[in-house]
Write a protein that binds this DNA or RNA. Structure first.
Ligand SMILES: [Mn+2]
Ligand SMILES: [Mn+2]
Ligand SMILES: [Mn+2]
Ligand SMILES: [Mn+2]
Lengths: 221, 221
DNA sequence: GCCGAGATTTAGGTTAACCTAAATAATTTC
DNA sequence: GAAATTATTTAGGTTAACCTAAATCTCGGC
C-alpha cells in the first residue's frame, strides 16, 4: 500500500486508542474517525492484509498495531505535534486553533519540512498541550502526570499536559492560566463528585467541574 | 462541487496556460497535470457543468476560466507563492526546493495560515522567483520583464523573474547569481542562435545557452 | 446453557479521479 | 480537397474510501 492520508489517520487513532496496549474495537475507531463502523472494518482488513502488515486483526476481536504500523503512527504523531508547536510558537496561533490545522498539514509535509521546523524549535520534546513529541527514530516518552480528578486535597505539582481535542475547553483553560509547567494545587474537594477547588499559580482558588479536571494532568511534586 | 485538490490544480494550471487570454487545449492541460487527455476531458465537463460554472467549454475547442474559476485559481496561486516565499525566507529552503513543497501545502492551509504567513512576510508582492503574489481580493500584477533571449547586445536592466519549474535550472541560476533584483547586461550575442554573453552584477561575463536565457526575464532599464 | 442487546461484519452501492482503447473531429500536408 | 496526422472525446474499466441495510457474532445476565 502507499500509505494514504486515510491510512495515516487510522494508524494514528489506533495508536492513541491503544494506549497501554489493549485492543481497539471497531466502534471506538469509527467514532473517533467520524466514519461508519462498516467502513472501519473494510479499512482494517486492508491494513491487515498489507505487506508489511500494519495491524494485527482477528474478526470480532479488535485490532492492534504491528511494529510497522506503530512506526508510521509515530511519524504522523511527530508531524502533528511539531506542527502544532510551530504554529503556536512561530506563527502565533492560540493553542485551541493548532489541532485543526495540524490535522491537515501532518499528511503533506516532507521530511525536509519536519526537520526544518524541528530545528527552528530547538528539537522540542513536548507540544503546546504537553504531549511528548516522538523522535525521528520513533521513540516516544511515556505521557506524564496524573489526572487532576484523581488528586486529593492538599496535593500540588505542575501541569504536565491537557487534552488537546476540545477548542472550547482549551480556551477556558487558557483563561484559568492552566497550561504545561504552571504550578497547581488542590485546595479541597467537595464530596459526591462535587467541584474541586484548585489554586493555579498564585491566583485565587477556582472551582472546577469534572469536565475540566478530567482533562488536566498533573506532575505531582 | 466542493473544490477538491484536483479541481484546484486544474484551475491553477488552466490559469497559467491561459496567459494573455487564449483558450487552453486538452493535451497541454493533460501534459502539465501528468494525466491522460481523456481524464482532462472528463474533469473539464464537470467544471463546466458546475454552478457556478468554473470554466467555459466547447467540445474540441478548449477551455477558459470563468470569473468564478479565475477567483479560485488566484486563491491557489496566492497560497502557492506565499508558501514558497515563507519556506525560503523563514525556513531557509533553497529556491529550487520550494515549489514541490508548496505544491502540496497550497491545498490544505487555512485562511488563518495564509494571513499569518503573509503578515510574517510583510504582505509581500513577489515570490522567490519574482512572480507576483495575488492579493487576498484576487488582484494580480501583470508579470514583468522581457525574455533575456529577446534582448540585444548592450541592453541592461535588472532580473525581474525566472521560471520556477526546473530545480536543476534554478540551482544553476543561483550559481550564476541570477535572481530577482540582480543587475544584468547583455555583452554580446553570437549569431545563429549561439550563446549570449551576459554580465551578472559585477562578475565577469558568462556565456549562456538558449535553455537558460529563455527562462530569465529582465526589466530593461 | 440460552437470550438478546450491542458490536461487528457482509453485501451491495456511490463518488471522485484516474486509466486504456476505440471512435470521431479538426488540422495540416500534398 | 482528399488523405494523413494529430487532438479530442466516448466507452468501458479500476481503485480508494466512503455509505446504508441486513446479516451474524459475542458476551453478560439470568
Ligand atoms: Mn489527519
Ligand atoms: Mn497537541
Ligand atoms: Mn497542487
Ligand atoms: Mn514561484
Amino acid at each position: 500500500m502507499e500509505i494514504s492520508h486515510a491510512v495515516e489517520d487510522y494508524l494514528k487513532i489506533i495508536y492513541e486508542l491503544q494506549g497501554a496496549g489493549g485492543k481497539v474495537n471497531t466502534t471506538a475507531l469509527a467514532e473517533r474517525l467520524n466514519v461508519a463502523p462498516a467502513s472501519v472494518t473494510g479499512m482494517i482488513k486492508k491494513l491487515a492484509e498489507d505487506r508489511p502488515r500494519l495491524v494485527n486483526y482477528e474478526r470480532h476481536h479488535g485490532v492492534t498495531l504491528t511494529t510497522a504500523g506503530e512506526k508510521i503512527a509515530l511519524e504522523v504523531i511527530r508531524h502533528h505535534r511539531l506542527i502544532e508547536l510551530y504554529l503556536h510558537e512561530a506563527l502565533g496561533y492560540s493553542w485551541d486553533q493548532v489541532d485543526a490545522e495540524a490535522e491537515k498539514l501532518e499528511h503533506v509535509i516532507s521530511e525536509e519540512f519536519e526537520d526544518r521546523i524541528a530545528a527552528a524549535l530547538g528539537q522540542p520534546k513536548i507540544d503546546p498541550h504537553g504531549d511528548p513529541i516522538p523522535t525521528k527514530e520513533g521513540v516516544i516518552a511515556a505521557p506524564t502526570g496524573e489526572r487532576l480528578t484523581d488528586l486529593a486535597a492538599g496535593q500540588r505539582g505542575r501541569v504536565a499536559r491537557v487534552s488537546d481535542d476540545d477548542p472550547a475547553l482549551l480556551r477556558y483553560l487558557a483563561e484559568l492560566g492552566i497550561k504545561p509547567e504552571t504550578a497547581i494545587a488542590v485546595v479541597d474537594r467537595s464530596p459526591f463528585d462535587g467541584p474541586m477547588h484548585v489554586r493555579v499559580g498564585n491566583r485565587s482558588p477556582q472551582a472546577l467541574g469534572r469536565q475540566v479536571t478530567d482533562h488536566v494532568f498533573v506532575e505531582v511534586r
